[in-house]
Simulated assay, not measured.
Amino acid sequence: MNKSSDLVRQHATVTRERRERQNGHKSFVLCFTGLSGAGKSTLANAVEEQLHQAGRRTFVLDGDNIRHGLNRDLGFSQEDRGENLRRVGELSSLFVEAGVITLVALISPYKQDRELVRTMFKPGEFFEISDDLISRI
């Protein structure tokens, strides 16, 4: 919920569709979630490397890196973890709008927080890869 009623959403003439057409690929989010040490960042970086070599526009949003900057004001309470994920979700949606394949690697222990982020995206734009799947790779 916005604290100001004076906000007006701006619409650019360069659309996501135009960016995707120029890039030659769709944009979406791959969200690697799980506990510390599960291999989220390692796998996200490996996948990014493969996509980059294939000529795709990519970016990794790593949970630790995000907490050094954008989310440095947050702790690790359940409420702060939810806000951390919400902010990363909003940032990811901007990257997707920019036509970028976005790989997110962060600890996200609460299903309700992940489901909230999922609602920020259309079907086929957000894919969650959990630590139980990562451990089988």
Rank of each mutant, 00 (worst) to 15 (best):
Q10Y: 14
I66C: 15
L51N: 03
P123K: 10
Q78V: 14
D62A: 01
R18H: 11
F121G: 07
V117A: 02
N84Q: 02
I107P: 07
F59L: 13
H11K: 15
T119E: 15
H52E: 09
V60S: 02
D80I: 01
D113L: 03
H25E: 05
A44N: 01
M120E: 04
R118Y: 06
G24D: 09
R21Q: 13
V100L: 05
L74D: 02
V100A: 02
F59A: 12
E128G: 09
G55I: 04
G82W: 03
R21I: 09
L91G: 04
F121R: 05
K111S: 12
G75C: 03
R118T: 12
L7Q: 15
H68D: 13
S4D: 11
F76T: 02
R19S: 05
N71Q: 03
F126E: 01
E48Y: 05
F95W: 04
T33W: 03
T42D: 00
D80T: 00
F127H: 10
F126Q: 06
E79V: 07
G82A: 13
C31S: 10
L51Q: 06
N84I: 01
Q112H: 14
Q50W: 10
L106G: 05
V29Q: 03
G55A: 02
G24S: 03
H11T: 14
Q50F: 11
L30R: 08
A12T: 12
L43N: 00
P123V: 06
D80E: 08
I134S: 08
M1Q: 12
R136H: 13
T33F: 02
D132G: 08
G89L: 01
G39M: 04
L116M: 14
L70Y: 10
S108C: 13
R9M: 11
G63V: 06
E90Y: 12
A98F: 02
S93N: 09
L133E: 14
R87T: 07
S93P: 02
N65R: 09
I101T: 00
S4Y: 13
A54Q: 14
D62W: 01
L35G: 11
E20P: 00
